[in-house]
Structure formats: C-alpha cells, structure tokens
Design a protein around this nucleic acid. Structure first.
Lengths: 228, 228
DNA sequence: TCAAAAGTGTTGACCCTACACCCATGG
DNA sequence: CCATGGGTGTAGGGTCAACACTTTTGA
C-alpha cells in the first residue's frame, strides 16, 4: 500500500467567514481590517488557514469561536474559491462559509481581529475576491432562509412576529405583507406563543414567540415542507 | 510586502466528479475502478489532484476532457469533503463536482480509466466517502433541475417531450403526469418545436423539440422563473 | 388625545392536480 | 386490425396576494 501520493501539488487552504447578524432591523456583516501587507488596513472577511489535522468545519468552528467566544454557531459552506491568482501572496484555495449569529448588546469580540459590524447595504470594498464571497453568501442565505428555518439563528430565543418579519424583509430585500406573513408562519405550527410581550418597539407591545425545534423535526418527518 | 504565508499547512487538493448521463430512460453515473492500493479494483468516482496553476474548475475541466474527449461539459461544484481521515493514504481535501453529459452511442471513453456507465439505482459500494458525494450530487441535481433548465444538458440537441419527461422522472425519482408536464414546459416558451418526428420509441412518432437558450436568457431578464 | 406599532379576515385570481379518450402508424 | 406510445382539455380545490380598520398604551 502506498504511503503518499507522489508528485502531486500541495496548496494552502483557508476558510473565510461571512458572518451575518441582525440588529435594529438591519442585516449586518462582521468584518475586520487586514493586519498584513498587501492590502493592510483594508476591509476583509475573517478567515484563517486550515490545519493538517482539521476539517473545514473544524477550522471554521475554531475561527468563529476565537472571534466571538461562542460555540454552536450555525454555519454552512457556501462554495470554494480557487482562482490561481486570487491571493497575491501565495496560491491559496479558500472555502467560504456563512455563519449566523444571535447578536447581543453585551457581546464581546476578540480584540485581536478588530472586528466590526457593518450594515449589509454599506459594505465597503473588500480585499481579494471577498466581495464575490459576500454575494454568494447573500444568495445562499436567501434560498436557505426560504426553505429552512434558519432565520431563528439570527434572533434571540424569544422574538416577536414583527421582528421575524423584519428579518425576512432584510434577507429578501423586499417588503412582506404583515397579515400574510404572520398567517403563513403561524400556520406551520412551529412557533410557541408565550405569555410575555415585548414593549421595546411599540406601546401596545408584541407577543413573544419561541421556535420549537422538536416540533419542526417532527413535522418534517411527516412531510412538512418549510417555505416562507 | 510578504512573499509567503509562513508556517501554514499545505494540503493535497483533489476534485471528484459525479458524472451523470441519461440513456434508455435511465440516469447513469460514470464510474471507474481504482488503479492503486488501497482499495485497488474497487469502484470509485473519477477524480484527480488540483495543480498549483489550476483552479478547481480548470482541474475538473481537464479531467473530464481527458476522460471523454468532450469540451464545454456542464459542471458545477457540489461541496467540499474535508474530513481529516477521508483518504487513508494522505490527508486530501476533495471538492465534489457534478457533470452532465449528453450520452452518445458512439462515445469513446479514454481507456486509461476503464470507466463504465452504471445505472443510478445500481451503484455499487464506492471507496472512501464517494457514496456521500454521490448522495450530495443527486440532491443538488434535483434542486438544480427544478429551478434551472439543466435537464437539456443530459439530452441530445433534439429531443421529444416524452423523453424530457422521462428524464425528469428519473431525476426526481417519481412519476409525472404527462399532460401537466407538457403543458407546463411548453407554457414557458423555451422549446422550439421542429417539423421532425422521432419514431424510435413509438409507431406514431413524437415531435422533436430544441431548447432555445437565447429565449431563456431573454425571459429570465424579464423575470421568468423556471420551475418544473 | 394622539401617535405608533400590533393584530386580525375576506375575496378574487391564479395555479396546480387529477383524470380519460382519441390519434397515428408499424407490424 | 391491433397494440403501442403520443397527444390533448377541463373542472374543482387550494393557495397566494391584495387590501383597511381597530386595538393598545406611553408620552
């Protein structure tokens, strides 16, 4: 049995993270300023190299944890970016991952990266092919959000229907009729209505709900297809 | 400006191709028998390593061309497979690509690979994680076929509606009502009806059609959303 | 009392599904 | 002349989009 594949090239492999958050009815991305030349000081996605003993998921989990201190962040591969000259320093293949974060006001980000949340409609020019990565991630987020209940990953555990609708409006970049939206989402029977109200955004207050993951898994087993 | 990223690991990177064909109303995959230990002689996808001066698309194109002699094969990334121990010989990251081929009776495959077409419902056990790759590719093919006019990549230029329907039945693994199917596909105005009939599969003969790509691009511009 | 957001129903249009019979022709 | 696959229309149900007014309450 052979011990190695002879004469094949070895490449640097990286992951770059498109980290979405939702705050003040806005979708945001977590960006950083590049620490080294070339393009030092320019805006960049947060990423890192994949080690010999890590899978891509491992590497992404490590990077996200180091940055945010959080575990169990929802994340998924977007696609690989492999143009030979995409990184001028050295030939690097990078796999883009998107991640969804429940933003909290008291959230502390590792100072090391100097990361900042930037509204999605105000993304500055980014280094290398990171713009394309963001575009691909936005597209993927749209289709995923439509067919899988991932929106909840961007909201606190307890949220209101208007909050959820506003999130979907931000993701889809279009307005949604509030009556149709709440009818549709409630008809799926995935939300548990709580007795509390959230009065932060109106005087009347809006009822809080919780996503019921168990019920979701059950319903999928019985052939529910989530579409919103 | 730095010239290299120091101290980061370099990995072997490969692509593996899930090559779909359609023949005799069956979806098929092009498989090969592995030429080296371990798992020598076992069924495998066709793949190869990515060179320092190639993108993933380049490498896939090269491999597909070497195997089939064809250019402009429709192909698309499925996802990356990166488990550390997925290849027992050496740590290798592999990106799965699916490809769609218009099978022709006189088609000559490079002898080097000893490749064979295998009906999709009779896929033998495959090496490494190639089974997972096939599953992922089948899933991707289903969603792509539903939303993009890629079915035509598996048929000859001229085809009949019953052929097309049978292809979609194979992809979806379910039967489709022939009246509803032809109404739906014809209503999209993407097919050009020819004056010829194909009499291979019936005495009456079925009219041949051609996919009109220009019209498709036009209609998409005007907001058509292909769904079948 | 007013401003601001939450909540709630109905209707018409369209789309999708289900379903059965005749046609053309090679053998 | 008959067996085989090709081709075609309709009706009913369900789903989706459009639409406006009332409620609550903090300021």
């Amino acid at each position: 049995m052979i011990k190695r594949y002879a004469q094949a090239d070895h490449l640097l492999v990286a992951v770059d993270c498109i980290i979405f958050g939702f705050d003040k009815n806005q979708l945001k991305l977590l960006l950083t300023k590049r620490a080294l030349e070339p393009e030092k000081g320019n805006w960049s996605l947060i990423g890192g190299f994949v080690g010999k003993q890590e899978s891509l998921d491992d590497a992404t989990t490590r990077i996200l944890h180091k940055l945010t201190g959080l575990k169990n962040i929802y994340m998924e591969e977007v696609k690989a970016f492999s143009e030979v000259k995409r990184d001028p320093v050295e030939r690097t293949l990078s796999v883009a991952y998107y991640a969804l974060i429940k933003m909290k006001p008291n959230m502390k980000l590792s100072a090391e990266y100097g990361a900042q949340w930037v509204p999605i409609d105000k993304i500055p020019p980014l280094i290398f092919d990171h713009q394309q990565m963001v575009e691909a991630a936005k597209k993927k987020l749209k289709t995923m959000a439509k067919h899988q209940p991932i929106g909840f990953e961007l909201l606190p555990k307890k949220f209101t229907i208007p909050q959820l609708r506003s999130l979907y409006e931000a993701i889809y970049e279009e307005e949604l009729d509030k009556r149709n939206f709440s009818r549709k989402i409630l008809a799926m029977n995935l939300l548990e209505k709580l007795d509390e109200k959230d009065k932060k955004s109106s005087k009347k207050g809006a009822f809080l709900y919780q996503f019921d993951k168990k019920r979701y898994i059950d319903l999928v087993r019985n052939g529910l297809s989530f579409v919103i």
